[in-house]
């Protein structure tokens, strides 16, 4: 996609989410906050899944870890935003350590290994009840202030995380790391032979895909003020985020934002009316993606322009 179209798209997206409070409707603000939350997760997944081409299902592991780390810090008296920063740091360290293990695997094996991380961390959160409250969950200190203030605060907090993830994406894409990751996605052995330090780069991509999830997870925990293992380490979320990126256009800057907002809005509009079809719709989107949209919506835009 031409870069000025891309910039316009990103600008409109940010403006649209930021302008949600103008509606004066708390429901709209809540949806916009979800759009930003999933936008941050999709941008995160894009580093490992889009640029490096590793089919990661570790998103919920990072989100869950970040939400517990942030909640525990906050409950221990650490100021809220600092807790999010610490949660991001904890998630980054965990991603680096886990990355060295699971990134030895390739293809389907990596996918299975990454989904196992979600299950393992979820089990730890359930068992270690002395720390995490176990299956009963954990209440998080509530931010003082009225509901209108709180709604806006968390919208802009999520949006700030999106902006950080966007900046990181643009820097990665323009630099050596992004180039090396694209080489890895296409032919890892050849990448190694031209001098790409593939293990280091994959771990860096995995850390980047973890750090913003950790921050967003912590912010989410503060927002909803309660977390439990099954919500924090949600298998549905770990599948949904890659679908969002594939829907928008993997390995691009705008694709993850486009795909995540499209899916959230689709779910919200259809959700209210056909509650029981929620999972079926996600399934239909996945099937449509596989058969009709290999390059995502951005790829479709490119094809339309070419044939015109």
């Amino acid at each position: 996609m031409a870069s000025h179209w891309r910039r316009i798209g990103i600008g409109l997206w940010l403006l649209g989410v930021a302008a949600a409070p103008l509606s004066g409707d708390n429901y709209v603000i809540k949806i916009a906050t979800f759009v930003a939350f999933y936008g941050a997760l999709a941008l995160s997944w894009n580093f490992i899944g889009g640029y490096a081409g590793y089919p990661s299902f570790a998103t919920a592991a990072f989100v869950g870890l970040g939400s517990y780390a942030g909640a525990l810090c906050q409950n221990a008296g650490v100021p809220m935003v600092l807790s999010w920063g610490l949660a991001a740091g904890v998630t980054a360290i965990a991603a680096a350590a886990l990355g060295f293990v699971v990134l030895r695997l390739r293809g389907h094996y990596f996918a299975i290994g990454s989904i196992a991380l979600v299950e393992i961390l979820s089990l730890i959160a359930s068992w270690w009840s002395g720390l995490t409250g176990g299956g009963e969950g954990l209440n998080v200190t509530i931010l003082p202030g009225g509901p209108v203030f709180i709604a806006r605060f968390f919208l802009y907090a999520m949006l700030a995380i999106v902006v950080l993830a966007l900046v990181a994406t643009v820097l990665v894409e323009r630099g050596r790391l992004g180039f090396g990751l694209r080489c890895i996605a296409q032919n890892e052995d050849a990448a190694e032979m031209v001098g790409v330090p593939t293990t280091l780069y994959k771990v860096l991509a995995f850390v980047l895909s973890g750090v913003f999830c950790g921050a967003a997870g912590a912010a989410y925990a503060s927002w909803v003020a309660y977390i439990a293992p099954t919500d924090a380490f949600s298998i549905l979320l770990t599948v949904k985020v890659p679908v969002m990126v594939l829907l928008g256009g993997p390995g691009t800057v705008f694709g993850p934002l486009l795909g995540s907002s499209a899916l959230v809005l689709l779910e919200e509009t259809v959700w209210a009316r056909f509650l029981e079809f929620h999972q079926a719709i996600l399934g239909a989107v996945i099937v449509a993606l596989i058969f009709f949209l290999p390059g995502g919506l951005l790829g479709l835009a490119g094809r339309v322009r070419k044939s015109a």
């Binding site: 080489c183 296409q186 050849a190 790409v196």
Partner: peptide, 18 residues
């Protein structure tokens, strides 16, 4: 062993860059 979806130029850039 080319990088198939990259341009010919980008393939060579990889060697030069890394």
């Amino acid at each position: 062993q080319p990088f198939p979806q990259m341009t010919v130029l980008e393939n060579v850039m990889a060697g030069s860059l890394f």
